[in-house]
Amino acid sequence: MKLRITIDGKAYEAEIEILEAAESAPDYPPYPPAPSAFVPPSAPEPMIALQDPETESNEKECRSPVTGMVMRVDVEPGQAVQPNDIVMVLESMKMEMQITAPQAAQVKSVLVTPGSSVKVNQLLVEFE
């Protein structure tokens, strides 16, 4: 069988032979055997947060629950706060987190400023 192909305005003639499907199929090596059934490793032991006796939380302290940066501080020493009043806003992994007062109290001291980096369990605010 002859075919004519035109590429960029120039005609080419080609002679083509059609083979049987079995003759034209390439010989591939056999597939490797399937792997044995996947067995996931045993689940890791749950991590238990151990706190130092010095850093145990109490109602007179406000500690950072995450590692991040202080975006805003909404209280100052001497200010009275009610439960769940926003004390400050932290940013961690591009998410903002509102830190609230655990109970009604008066702010004794604020230990961080906007732009400060904080670590997990770091003391942020002390209450009287």
Rank of each mutant, 00 (worst) to 15 (best):
A37C: 03
L3C: 07
I7Q: 08
E17V: 10
E13F: 03
A22M: 04
K10W: 02
Y28F: 15
A22G: 02
I16V: 09
G9A: 14
A25G: 12
E13L: 03
A21Y: 01
P40S: 05
A14K: 01
L19V: 08
Y12S: 03
P35S: 13
L3N: 10
K2H: 09
K2R: 11
G9K: 15
D27K: 06
K10P: 01
Y12G: 06
P33F: 07
A22P: 01
E17D: 08
D27H: 12
P32K: 05
D8L: 14
P35Y: 12
P40F: 03
I16L: 04
P40K: 05
Y12N: 02
I7N: 07
P30W: 06
E13R: 04
E15Q: 14
A11I: 04
E20P: 00
P33G: 08
D8Y: 11
E13S: 09
A25Y: 09
P29Y: 10
E15T: 13
A22K: 14
I16S: 00
D27V: 14
L19R: 13
P30D: 05
K10L: 04
Y31S: 03
P30L: 09
A21M: 09
D27S: 13
E23C: 05
I16N: 00
P29W: 11
K10S: 00
A11P: 02
E13W: 11
P26A: 07
P30T: 02
R4I: 04
Y12V: 07
P35H: 15
E15V: 04
S24Q: 13
S24I: 05
E13I: 03
I16F: 01
F38V: 05
A25S: 11
S36H: 08
A22T: 12
E23L: 07
V39I: 11
I7K: 14
L19K: 12
A34F: 11
I7G: 10
S36K: 14
P29S: 15
I5D: 03
D27T: 07
P40L: 01
I7M: 07
A22V: 11
A21D: 06
V39C: 02
I7W: 10
D27G: 08
A14V: 09
P26V: 08
P33H: 04
I16M: 02
E15R: 09
E20Q: 04
E23T: 14
P35A: 15
E15W: 05
A34Q: 14
A11W: 05
D8K: 11
A34I: 06
D27C: 04
K10Q: 05
D27Q: 02
S24Y: 09
E23F: 03
E17N: 04
S24P: 00
P30I: 04
I5C: 01
P29T: 14
R4Q: 10
P29K: 10
K2D: 12
G9W: 09
R4W: 06
P29Q: 07
A14P: 00
Y31K: 00
P35G: 12
S36V: 03
A34G: 06
I18Q: 12
K2Q: 13
A25R: 13
P32N: 06
P29A: 15
F38G: 02
G9V: 08
Y28M: 10
L19S: 09
A21F: 01
I16A: 09
I18E: 15
K10C: 05
I5V: 15
Y31Q: 06
Y12T: 01
L19G: 05
V39F: 10
F38C: 05
I18N: 09
I16H: 00
E20A: 10
P35V: 13
P40R: 05
I7V: 15
R4V: 12
Y28H: 01
